[in-house]
Design a protein around this nucleic acid. Structure first.
Lengths: 182, 182
DNA sequence: TTTTGCGTTCGAGCGCGCTCGAAGTCCTAG
DNA sequence: CTAGGACTTCGAGCGCGCTCGAACGCAAAA
């Protein structure tokens, strides 16, 4: 049930639009059939990050990667899955530090599950806060665009008198109006 | 009408919750009655940034601030409004560079309005993309929390076999399931 | 055989957005 | 008269997350 909720939300998130989401879908769909092993270039390509970054993550202790006869990295499916996770977390704004902490918990064994949950829950809340902030900003920017663009429209009235020079340019009335006091 | 939409969305954004939004409301409400002039400490307080940062923004050419007899900064209402805008933009992730560009357009006069609109529209799209990304990440994290936490629940079945060691710890099946291949 | 290309390690460097410290000025309270 | 505190300028430093370059190794293609 909770699961259904999540699925629904995920689908909603993709609802309208664009190339970015399509890529995302592909990435995720491909997770189903990962090759046994991959080269650094392949993984970099899959995750859309540079080989440099992959080496950096390894140096940072986020993942261990075996070498072949030539000393080249060989990423097995588990390493790739971990990197998918790490990349997603980075993208969602989790700092390297926290990721290192989390990974150290994972590597420490199953008894750290509760602590891992704490980390995840905290991060979840951080993401939620961020989304709220961005939604607010988005509203402000959209309002500004609307009042700028529709100079002929009725919205302009809402801004009050214009002083000839660019007083409306940075005006922040939008949210003052959009958000009733309290 | 478009305006009503925006108001609605803004209110929705505040719907559930917390202290952060409450602060936001206060900040915005206060915009209505700004004092004629303010000191750096007052502005810093209002915007919840440090005096250091305010000086930095000035050095960066984002705002001009007059001095009093003692060489102390005196922020007039317009400067404060601009700083409110700037702070909001920074919070929403607009880089200093873009802000500098935007401000240079504002200072260049009214004929740059179309170009300013371009900047705003682009930033709006950036924010939207970011929100989508975060929403996706949020779903993933929530799913992981759900499957971790409800170890006794039915959700665990969805994860497939556990291999004793921590294979599920970083498993990314959530989105593979949540997002049908397409 | 030489070149091309993909990989390796190591350490340094960079871009961003602050953040801080030093040294000085000025006003006010005790 | 002195001490405290809030301010000034200036330049340096920092934390983050990469990003890059140098010098090298190996292997398949020309």
């Amino acid at each position: 049930m909770a699961t259904d909720d999540l699925m629904t939300r995920a689908l909603e998130a993709l609802g309208d639009d664009g190339p970015l989401s399509v890529e995302a879908i592909h990435r995720l769909a491909d997770l189903a059939d990962l090759p046994e092993t991959m080269t650094i270039a392949e993984v970099a390509d899959l995750l859309d990050i540079s080989p440099h970054t992959l080496r950096y993550y390894e140096r940072a202790g986020l993942v261990e990667v075996a070498r072949d006869g030539n000393g080249h990295r060989v990423y097995d499916a588990e390493a790739v899955r971990r990197l998918v996770f790490l990349t997603r977390m980075r993208l969602s704004g989790m700092p390297m530090r926290d990721l290192q902490h989390y990974i150290s918990l994972v590597d420490a064994g199953g008894h750290t599950v509760p602590e891992r949950l704490d980390v995840l829950v905290e991060h979840r809340d951080t993401i939620r806060r961020r989304i709220r902030e961005l939604t607010l900003s988005l509203t402000a920017v959209e309002y500004k665009i609307a009042t700028y663009g529709g100079s002929t429209g009725p919205d302009v009235q809402a801004l009050g008198t214009t002083t000839g020079t660019d007083r409306t340019a940075l005006l922040d009335e939008p949210l003052r109006r959009a958000l009733p006091a309290e």
